[in-house]
C-alpha cells in the first residue's frame, strides 16, 4: 500500500494522470482519444523531422528546468525562469546582431552573453532576497513581467531590425549559428550542451563542497546556517547560477533555432519547466528524461491541434494538474526565518 502510494504520489503517478487527463481533454474536444494520441505521437515521434522537433522542444525546456532544479535544491523558489530565458536570449540576440565578431569564436561570446544576462536577472532576485529579505517568489515573478516589457521595448524600438515588419532584431550572421545536429531540421547541438549542463550540474550538486552547502541550505536551512554556510551568499549564488542556466537556454534558442531575437522566443517554457523539474524529482539526469517527455507533449500538441482538432492549450492544463499532484511531495524545507510572502 505504502509502496503504491509512494509510486502513484510521485512522478509515475503524475505521468499516468497526464495520459488520463489528455484523454479527457480529447473527449471534451469531441475527439476519440485513440485518434488524439495517434496525432500526438505521430506529431512528435513519427519521423526524423518530428523527432528533431521534439528534441528542439526538449532542449528549450531542459535549460530552464535545470536552472529551476538548482534553485529548488537550494530551497529557493525560482518561478522566474521565463524572464531569465528571455533576457538570456535578448542578450545573445542583441550582441549577435550588432557587435558580434565574424569569427567562429562569436558563438561562444553569444552563449556567454546569454549566461551572463540570465545570471544577472536571477541575481537581482538573489540580491533582493539576500540584502532585503524580499521574497524570491514574488520578485522572480515580477521580473518575468519586467523582462517582457524590456524585451518588447528594445525589439520594437532601439534594437528593431530596420527592414523587419514585426518586432524582432536584425538576424545573426550565419557564422554565429549553432551547428545543426540533424541536417534540414531546427535541431542544433544545443541539445548536447543541455545534456552536458545536466551532467555538470549533477556533479556540482553531488560531489563539490559548494553543492554540499547548497543542498544543506535547501534541506535544512537552520542547520546549514549554523554549520558554516553563508546563507545570503548562497542565496545570491544559487539564484544567479539558476538564472544563468536558464539564460544560456535562451541564448541557444536564439543562436540555434530562431537565429534572431524576438518576443515569441518562449511560449511559456519557463513555467512548463517547473513541471519538468518536479517530474524529474529535482535530479538533473531524471530532469533530462522528464524534459524529453514534455518535449513530446509540446511538439505533439501542435500536431494534435492540427490533425485532431484538440486545442494545444490542453497540454498546459495537464502540466498544471501534474504540478498539483506533485505538490504532495515536499521539495523545500520550511525556513524558520523565511522571507515574508
Amino acid at each position: 500500500m505504502s509502496y503504491l502510494k509512494r509510486t502513484l504520489g510521485g512522478p509515475a503517478g503524475a505521468i499516468l494522470l497526464a495520459f488520463f487527463l489528455a484523454a479527457v481533454a480529447m473527449l471534451v474536444a469531441g475527439v476519440s482519444p485513440l485518434d488524439g494520441f495517434e496525432a500526438l505521437f505521430i506529431g512528435s515521434l513519427g519521423g526524423r523531422n518530428q523527432i528533431a522537433e521534439t528534441l528542439v522542444q526538449t532542449t528549450a525546456l531542459l535549460f530552464p528546468a535545470l536552472g529551476i532544479t538548482l534553485a529548488f535544491r537550494a530551497g529557493l523558489f525560482n518561478i522566474g525562469a521565463e524572464g531569465q530565458l528571455v533576457i538570456g536570449g535578448l542578450a545573445a540576440g542583441a550582441l549577435g546582431a550588432h557587435f558580434a565578431p565574424a569569427t567562429p569564436l562569436a558563438i561562444f561570446v553569444l552563449l556567454a552573453a546569454g549566461f551572463v544576462g540570465g545570471g544577472i536577472w536571477g541575481g537581482i532576485a538573489g540580491w533582493l532576497r539576500a540584502q532585503f529579505n524580499a521574497n524570491e517568489i514574488i520578485s522572480t515573478l515580477m521580473l518575468n513581467f519586467v523582462a517582457l516589457a524590456v524585451a518588447n521595448y528594445l525589439v520594437s524600438g532601439p534594437l528593431k531590425a530596420s527592414n523587419a515588419s514585426g518586432a524582432e532584431t536584425t538576424p545573426l550572421p550565419a557564422s554565429s549559428y549553432l551547428p545543426t545536429l540533424i541536417p534540414d531540421t531546427r535541431l542544433s547541438i544545443a541539445i548536447v550542451i543541455a545534456i552536458g549542463a545536466a551532467i555538470v550540474l549533477r556533479w556540482l550538486l553531488k560531489r563539490t563542497v559548494f553543492g554540499y552547502e547548497l543542498r544543506a541550505s535547501g534541506e535544512a536551512p537552520d542547520a546549514a546556517r549554523r554549520n558554516g554556510v553563508n546563507m545570503p551568499r548562497m542565496t545570491l549564488l544559487a539564484l544567479t547560477l539558476s538564472g544563468a542556466i536558464a539564460g544560456l537556454g535562451g541564448a541557444t534558442i536564439v543562436t540555434g533555432v530562431l537565429h534572431r531575437f524576438n518576443t515569441q522566443l518562449s511560449p511559456g517554457y519557463g513555467y512548463t519547466a517547473i513541471a519538468v523539474a518536479l517530474v524529474g524529482d529535482l535530479n538533473p539526469l531524471w530532469v533530462c528524461v522528464a524534459a524529453f517527455g514534455f518535449g513530446i507533449l509540446e511538439a505533439g500538441g501542435l500536431a494534435m491541434q492540427a490533425l485532431a482538432d484538440v486545442p494545444k492549450d490542453a497540454i498546459h492544463v495537464i502540466e498544471g494538474l501534474i504540478i498539483l499532484v506533485l505538490a504532495a511531495r515536499r521539495y523545500v524545507a520550511t525556513r524558520a526565518e523565511a522571507a515574508p510572502i
Binding site: 517547473i274 502540466e319 498544471g320
Partner: peptide, 25 residues
C-alpha cells in the same frame, strides 16, 4: 498537506491553460 507554493503554481497553469483551451473549444 501539499507544498502550497508548488500547488498554487499548478493552479495558475491549470487556469491559464484551461481558459485558453476553452476559448478555442
Amino acid at each position: 498537506k501539499v507544498d502550497q507554493i508548488v500547488a498554487g503554481t499548478g493552479i495558475n497553469l491549470v487556469a491559464a491553460g484551461g481558459a485558453a483551451y476553452a476559448l478555442t473549444l
